[in-house]
């Protein structure tokens, strides 16, 4: 992660990370999750699901901040995020 200013407590900083779960066959391809993810983690795939829609896939898994916006804005209850085990992250300054 890049910062515009190096935080003083950078060495103690722990950025939460999320693990994304997608039930592809429940998705109706609305792209709300793709559009509103603040970290551009998701993208619609070329693959068709059982209903003929293009579900999203996780394009940038490391970028996910566990904000759960995708989960909240999905009208189909098809995507959700759990918190990844905490690990000390390398931070570029």
């Amino acid at each position: 992660m890049k910062f515009w200013r190096k935080p003083l407590d950078l060495d103690q900083l722990e950025i939460p990370h999320g693990e994304i779960h997608i039930v592809k066959d429940r998705c109706k391809g609305c792209a709300f999750c793709v559009e509103y993810c603040p970290k551009d983690v998701l993208e619609l795939s070329d693959e068709f699901n059982i209903k003929g829609y293009h579900p999203p896939y996780v394009k940038n898994p490391d970028q996910c901040l566990f904000c759960r916006l995708c989960e909240t804005i999905c009208p189909e209850f098809a995507i959700w995020v759990t918190e990844k085990q905490k690990e000390v992250k390398k931070v570029e300054s």
Binding site: K28, P75, T82
Partner: peptide
């Protein structure tokens, strides 16, 4: 991608999902 239980399964009747609402309808939100 991993399949598990949706965190709201205690409030939603998942056996009735997928719901009838159209793609990009906002009622589910």
């Amino acid at each position: 991608v991993i399949e598990e239980k949706h965190p709201m399964e205690n409030i939603l009747r998942m056996d009735r999902i997928p719901h009838i609402w159209c793609p990009t309808c906002g009622i589910g939100i």
